[in-house]
């Protein structure tokens, strides 16, 4: 565990974070898809060309998984996060294609202390996944649980 920089208290509404980008190769797309989402437009270049998508696209679950990694890189691994109860909403707006470089823009929507445990709190976030053209390809709204700084000291 690295040093904790962000506790529940730090995620005030309006707080923002921009992750570094990560590029996605055709090989990464097909490797993920063969394991978890082997629909032909995720696994097979030729079949994907003939599909309505006109070429290989990443599984939406890979986009979410990469977003999770970007979140880790951006702030999460430096935080007191102890897990997530889920996502209220998740939208895939645009296909993610080989060579796309994704980055994550995080915004805090709401900060709620735990009713049951004074050492914890919940933060509601909006996460936008953007490609290299600054187009939003995916958006998530969800919550994460954090330990409070007061409890750690």
């Amino acid at each position: 565990m690295t040093t904790i920089k962000y506790y529940w208290e730090d995620f005030i509404p309006g707080w923002e974070n921009e992750s570094p980008p990560r590029a996605l190769s055709a090989q990464q797309i097909t490797v993920f898809a063969r394991e978890y989402d082997p629909q032909s437009y995720h696994t097979d270049e030729e079949a994907a060309k003939a599909s309505p998508f006109g070429g290989l696209i990443a599984s939406g679950w890979q986009t979410c998984s990469v977003a999770m990694r970007l979140m880790c890189d951006g702030y999460l691994l430096q935080s007191s996060c102890i897990g997530s109860p889920g996502m209220d909403e998740l939208r895939w707006f645009k296909p993610v294609r080989p060579g796309d470089a994704l980055r994550l823009h995080t915004t805090v929507i709401e900060q709620t202390p735990s009713q049951k445990d004074a050492r914890r709190g919940t933060v509601k976030f909006r996460w936008d996944v953007l490609n290299q053209k600054a187009e939003v390809v995916c958006t998530m709204v969800g919550r994460q649980h954090y330990r409070r700084r007061a409890a750690a000291q």
Partner: peptide, 13 residues
Amino acid sequence: GLGSPGVSHLRWL
């Protein structure tokens, strides 16, 4: 099919 536009109420219980 033509893919998925999204998901709601994803809960890890």
